[in-house]
Computed example of a mutant assay.
Amino acid sequence: MSTPDAPEASTTQQDTVYAHLRQWVTVGRFQPGERLKIRTVAAEMGVGEMPVRAALQRLAAEGALVNVPNAGVAVPRLSLPEFDDLLQLRMLLEGEAAERGAARLDAAGQKSLGALCKRMARSLARGDSSDYLGANEDFHVRLYQAAGSPLLFALIDTLWLKAGPISNQLFDTPDASAVLNDAHEDLMKALGRRDSAGVRRAVEKDIFVAGQFLRRRIQQQKVSR
């Protein structure tokens, strides 16, 4: 009886490993240009190499990673045109999701966003980039899922997968931390006024401001290479 269950168990583990790795890419755990070694990733996750290999290839097929000849997979570097295109699409889709979500968000949802906004402020104050990025993702996920459009959220999630690796570089710019939470605070004020259009503008501002810091990083890296 144990043999027929083995493929299902293996598939479940592969899916779990894939989900974890996808999350790591999305929140910027890996840097642009970083080569991902199967053995190292497997050891860090406490799993075998086979599910990690399958997950990395699945992410490469999605464009989140790239295959490097004779070197496995690596995190891609975005060119300026690619980054600008990604930024514009994020503002368009996330602005729409934010406006829809704000119109449907209940009191409990607003309260949870308020708590996350305060958590982000504390994270920035103590220089905890990892906690900030985690809270930031949770904040936007809750708002966008309130829009009630799984298709819209899936499109946004695909864009996040491509933007994730460079997002950590926000904290390589000392003056970024001083302004990163401003748009979230504007958003909470708009929510309090039941101003869905204001929420949309706040999300667009959030993406644009962070994008300008990241754009400069891409330009600097291009010059240094």
Rank of each mutant, 00 (worst) to 15 (best):
S2D: 13
S2Q: 14
P4G: 07
D5V: 11
A6Y: 12
E8I: 09
T11F: 15
T12Y: 08
L21A: 04
R22T: 02
W24G: 07
T26E: 08
T26P: 00
R29W: 09
Q31N: 08
P32G: 13
G33W: 05
G33Y: 07
G33K: 06
E34S: 12
I38L: 11
V41S: 05
V41W: 02
A42E: 01
A42I: 05
M45N: 02
G46V: 07
V47L: 11
R53Y: 11
Q57E: 14
G63Q: 05
G63M: 10
V66T: 13
N67Y: 10
P69Y: 07
N70F: 14
A71T: 11
V73T: 15
V73F: 13
S79F: 08
P81E: 10
Q88H: 15
L92Y: 13
A98T: 07
E99H: 10
R104P: 07
D106Q: 07
A108Y: 14
A108W: 10
L113E: 01
A115M: 08
A121Y: 03
R122N: 11
L124C: 03
L133W: 00
G134P: 00
H140E: 07
V141K: 10
R142E: 09
P150R: 15
L151A: 10
F153D: 04
F153N: 11
T158P: 01
N168V: 11
Q169T: 03
D172P: 00
A176L: 09
D182A: 14
H184V: 02
D186C: 14
L187P: 00
L187S: 03
M188K: 02
M188Y: 04
G192W: 04
S196H: 06
A197L: 12
G198V: 08
V199F: 07
R201S: 15
E204F: 10
I207E: 01
V209S: 06
L214Q: 00
L214H: 05
R215S: 09
R217A: 06
I218W: 03
Q221K: 11
